[in-house]
Amino acid sequence: MNFALNRRLFLQASTVAGGGFMLGFALPGNEAEAAAAPEVNAWIVIQPDDTVIVRVAHSEMGQGAFTALPMMVAEELNADWAKVKPEFINPTEHVQRNRVWGGTATVGSRAVRTSHEYLRKAGASAREMLIAAAAQQWKVPASEVRAEKSVLTHTPTGRTLSYGKVASAASRMPAPKDVALKPHTEWTILGTPKSRVEIPDKVMGKPVFAIDVRLPDMLFAAIEHSPAFGGKLKSFDEKAVAKMPGVRAVVALADSAVAVVADSYFEASRA
C-alpha cells in the first residue's frame, strides 16, 4: 500500500492549489493558508500550535453542522474544544480521494445521523495514534499514556506532551483496526452546549455568503426564465437595452432563459 505516500503527495499538490479552507471564510483576499501539518487521518490535522483542524463535509446553512460534526470528532479525540477549528472539505479532493469524507449532501436532517459513527471513529482512531506516538517517544507502553484535553500524559511519571508536538509522528502510526466508542455517559463535549462557531462572523456582516463575493472586473447577470414551465425562448430584442448604462451583453441560456450582463446587478436587473 502506498496510500500514505500518495496522500502526502496529494497534500503537497493541494497545498499549492489552496487545498483546504479554514472557517473565517475563503472569499478572495482572506483565504487562510492550507494546513501545512500532515493529516493524522483524513478528518484531522493537528498543527504544531495544537490547533485541531476538523474537516467538515456537510454544508452550513444555520443548522449547526460546522459545530456539531467537529464536536463528534473532538469528543473521541479527547481534544480541547477551544482549540478545534472546522474546515470545509475541498470537493474536488473529496472525489479524487475516493470520497474519503463520506456523504456530502446536506438534506433530510441527515448530517449527524448518517455520519456519527465514522466521525467518532475517526476521532478515536486519531487519539490512539497520538497515544502510540507519545509512547514511542517516551519508550513506554501505550497503556501508560492517557489523552485528555489535547494533552498526552505518561501516567506513572506525569510527563506531558501536547497533541501538536506528536501529531506529525502520529500521522505515521498505523491506524488501529478497531476502536471502541465512549458510552454517552462519559461524554464531556457531546451533549453539552457549544456556541456555534460561525456566529461571530455572521453578526459582523462578514462576507460568508456566495452572493458577497467580489472579484476584480466582475460583471453581474440578471436572469429571466420562461414564465411557463416547459416554455421556450422565441426571440428577444437586444437593441432595446444594448445602450442602457452598464449593459455589456444579452445572452440566451439554452432555450429557456435570457441573461443580461452588466457592470452592476442593478443595471442588469432593470434592463
Binding site: 456556541s195 460561525e198 456566529i199 455572521k202 453578526v203 459582523m204 456582516g205 455568503f209
Partner: peptide, 20 residues
C-alpha cells in the same frame, strides 16, 4: 451584536444584518 452572540440568534444569518 453582543446580545446576538450571547443568544445564538443567527441561524443561516443572511437576514441578520438587517434584523440587527
Amino acid at each position: 451584536q453582543a446580545a446576538w452572540v450571547a443568544h445564538e440568534v443567527p441561524q443561516c444569518g443572511y437576514c441578520q444584518p438587517g434584523m440587527m
